[in-house]
Design a protein around this nucleic acid. Structure first.
Length: 188
DNA sequence: CTTGGGATGGTCT
DNA sequence: GACCATCCCAAGG
């Protein structure tokens, strides 16, 4: 298993969203490691996607979506949560990112339980704000390079992707015809 | 099982 | 001043 190269993210955002399923998200805090298999993603593009933060124009919040692919785009929402995205788009497009909506916990499960204040393993990181809580991802990780071995990065996974389900994205009002939410099931 | 409302504050109009 | 790429728990059926 190795770090995903920058070129992985320099492809169409929807393609990258599907290909991130089954990959491994790794968080290092001090000498501790937390990791999980990515099980749910959503693609957010640019001018063809009214549901995207990047749809209107570049702002202080969304500027990461316009910058280097393979870096993180973290935003604060609903007054108390962070959501974690990976910047990805093909070279001919100006902006795009993949929202990581769920992981299947692998390592550091006890730390995740502590970070979340919950004991039930099944609901530790099965939502965009749950996984940022479990992994302690905050605005200080904005723009972080995920192709480098640091405190947060993404590696290829040992898991083969099986059936990928495509549905409308969650919690949006625009562009509900686009089936850009992708999920896999990970066997226990 | 499903539904509804409260928490809580940054961002954009 | 409204909206929000959410979560949790309580109440209802």
């Amino acid at each position: 298993m190795s770090l995903l190269p920058r070129s992985f993210y320099a492809r169409d955002t929807v393609t990258v969203a599907k290909d991130l399923l089954g990959k491994k998200l790794v968080r290092k805090i001090g000498n501790r490691t937390i990791s999980g298999i990515i099980t749910e993603t959503e693609a957010y593009r640019h001018k063809d996607d009214p549901a995207s933060h990047a749809f209107r124009r570049k702002t202080d919040r969304n500027r990461a979506m316009f910058e280097e692919v393979g870096r993180s785009y973290v935003y604060f929402t609903y007054g108390m949560y962070f959501c974690f995205n990976v910047v990805a788009r093909k070279p001919s497009v100006e902006a795009g990112a993949v929202l990581i909506r769920g992981i299947h916990p692998e390592k550091g499960i006890e730390i995740m339980k502590k970070n979340r204040g919950k004991d039930n393993e099944k609901i530790l990181a099965n939502g965009p704000a749950k996984l940022t809580q479990a992994l302690k991802i905050t605005r200080k990780h904005y723009g972080l390079d995920l192709t480098k071995n640091s405190e947060l990065f993404i590696k290829s996974g040992p898991y083969r992707r099986k059936k990928i389900t495509s549905t409308p994205r969650v919690g949006i009002r625009e562009a509900t015809d686009k089936l850009w939410n992708f999920k896999i099931k990970v066997e226990q």
